[in-house]
């Protein structure tokens, strides 16, 4: 049974439509949601979590329908819009204490383990943390309640190369523990280092969804290039030079 099943997801905005987005994610796999800025990645993730309301389609998480089983699902998954961007001036100790009360399966020893592994100082507030540390704190909160699925929106954006490499290390460790991860990014090199699957969105529509290796092989055969970056450019680049010259 897929841990996440998105079927024909549709969200209509006045100037943008997310149309018939479908994909599945299995337990213990990392899926990258790629696409250029404005392609619909964040809308997709927010729709999955019902933070924005889809106009059509269905989402099943852990075998349960969203939003009917909202509380149970949220107890078992973690969502982060990148790093922490709330309660920027409150000590993370205080945020963690308040947050932990909402999760019956909160594990204090896991919390301390990640706190120590990520070198997070509980007396600091999120505004005192680097972008990389904010993402790590966000992950700490999610992992301390033993999230089975992590949904992360652009977690590697704005991070330096070392922080990104460390974060990808964490993703691989979590995958080996059986956690499924869905993260959006437009930094294609991150995906090549850790993703098992990709879902590629362009202008609100799915271009491809499936194992990364198969997508790379197919694109190579079609002459679109060998790297994800080349493939994305091949699919989407407009010739602005000619437009500007006209």
């Amino acid at each position: 049974m897929p841990i996440l099943e998105v079927v024909s997801l549709r969200k209509v905005y006045p100037r943008f439509t997310l149309d018939s987005v479908s994909f599945t994610l299995e337990k213990g796999r990392i899926m990258g949601l790629i696409g250029r800025n404005g392609a619909g990645k964040t809308t997709t993730l927010k729709s999955i979590f019902d933070v924005v309301h889809p106009d059509g389609g269905s989402v099943r998480l852990l075998g349960m329908d969203m939003p009917e089983n909202e509380r149970e699902i949220k107890r078992r998954i973690g969502y982060a819009g990148g790093g922490v961007d709330w309660y920027m001036r409150s000590p993370i100790r205080k945020i963690a204490r308040v947050t932990s009360a909402f999760y019956p399966n909160w594990d204090e020893s896991e919390y301390n383990k990640y706190l120590s592994a990520f070198s997070l100082d509980e007396s600091k507030s999120p505004r005192e943390l680097s972008e990389g540390m904010k993402v790590k704190f966000s992950l700490t909160l999610a992992l301390s309640h033993r999230a089975e699925l992590l949904i992360l929106d652009e977690p590697t954006s704005g991070l330096d190369p070392v922080s990104r490499a460390e974060l990808l290390d964490v993703f691989r460790f979590l995958r080996d523990k059986g956690v499924a991860i869905l993260f959006s990014t437009h930094i294609t090199t991150d995906l090549e280092k850790c993703a098992d699957d990709i879902t590629y969105i362009a202008n609100g529509r799915i271009v491809a969804s499936g194992p990364l290796d198969a997508f790379l092989a197919k694109s190579k055969d079609e002459g679109r290039g060998e790297s994800l970056e080349d493939i994305m450019v091949s699919y989407e680049k407009e010739s602005l030079y000619e437009k500007l010259a006209d």
Binding site: E72, I73, W86, R89, F102
Partner: peptide, 13 residues
């Protein structure tokens, strides 16, 4: 503090 954003991500209706 983006409290609403934080709150809706918690396991609550």
């Amino acid at each position: 503090a983006n409290d609403i954003q934080y709150s809706v991500l918690l396991p609550v209706a």
